[in-house]
């Protein structure tokens, strides 16, 4: 399956945001659900091996957009001879704009082979909250092969560059350097760093870390999703987006 979906949010000039473009192809179905909120509603099974999905997000100067999803993404095996399923997300956030990406988790079912590529470009003065949760295998199931490849840039420089591999093709992924016994991991990248609470660590496998550049990362690892949500939900809901989030 091949899909190209795109959402463009622009300031309406009166402190509000209007969606000047909302184009969806199944299974990346986008629906406006609030003044500044869009949901991905293409639930159910998928992506499958061979799928090639691309989502483009553009937030113009002064606009505010929050994207959520109604259900988890479930990466499934599909036919063995096909290439890995691939989801590419490209987002741009203009100066004075704000984007909050808060989807439900990606679940890597046994036998899947999936790659998510994320490229986010935030202009100077833009603000971003970018959350990704990953669950390695459904309940009591081995993890499939899954890789995430994330680049977040701010004001023309790379701010955060991260790849995570789990499953049978990733040596040592379930060892004590990478995820250990953890089968769920959540990360939140925030620009500016002040969108997250001050740096902290523990008590669980959770830390908020100031990046070398003007941002911060929160990471939580746990046996299942519940503790990850307990750690990350409060910091994501801490303050609603306002146009042109200031440090």
């Amino acid at each position: 399956m091949r899909a190209r979906s795109r959402v463009v949010a622009e300031s309406d000039g009166h402190g509000g945001t209007r969606l000047t473009e909302l184009r969806s192809e199944s299974p990346l179905l986008l629906r406006r659900t609030g003044a500044r909120t869009v949901h991905l509603v293409g639930g159910g099974a998928g992506p499958l091996r061979g799928d090639d999905l691309r989502l483009e997000i553009e937030v113009g100067p002064g606009a505010t957009l929050e994207i959520r999803s109604v259900a988890a993404q479930l990466a499934l095996p599909g036919r063995a001879h096909l290439p890995p399923s691939r989801l590419e997300i490209h987002a741009t956030v203009a100066g004075g704009a704000s984007l909050r990406w808060l989807p439900e988790p990606l679940i890597a079912a046994a036998g899947c082979d999936h790659l998510t590529v994320t490229r986010v470009e935030v202009a100077e003065g833009g603000s971003l909250l970018w959350r990704d949760d990953l669950v390695c295998g459904r309940h009591d199931e081995d993890s499939g092969t899954v890789r995430t490849d994330t680049t977040i840039r701010y004001a023309g420089s790379t701010l955060y560059r991260h790849e995570l591999s789990a499953g049978p093709a990733a040596p040592g992924w379930s060892g004590p350097a990478v995820l250990g016994e953890g089968r769920a991991i959540g990360t939140v990248v925030a620009v500016p760093a002040s969108l997250l609470p001050p740096a902290t660590s523990g008590p669980a496998d959770f830390a908020i870390m100031p990046l070398a550049g003007p941002g911060a990362l929160a990471t939580a690892v746990a046996a299942d999703l519940r503790p990850v949500r307990a750690a990350l939900d409060p910091i994501c809901d801490r303050q609603p987006a306002t146009a042109g989030g200031r440090p």
């Binding site: 490849d149 680049t151 790379t158 560059r161 991260h162 790849e163 995570l164 591999s165 004590p176 350097a177 990478v178 995820l179 250990g180 953890g182 991991i185 990360t187 740096a199 660590s201 523990g202 496998d205 959770f206 830390a207 870390m209 990471t219 690892v221």
Partner: peptide, 22 residues
Amino acid sequence: PVDDLPAAGAPLLDIGAELHAT
């Protein structure tokens, strides 16, 4: 190019290092 160089992360190393530093 630098952005294309490997970027494989190890979340427990990051979290452990932050805890250790305290």
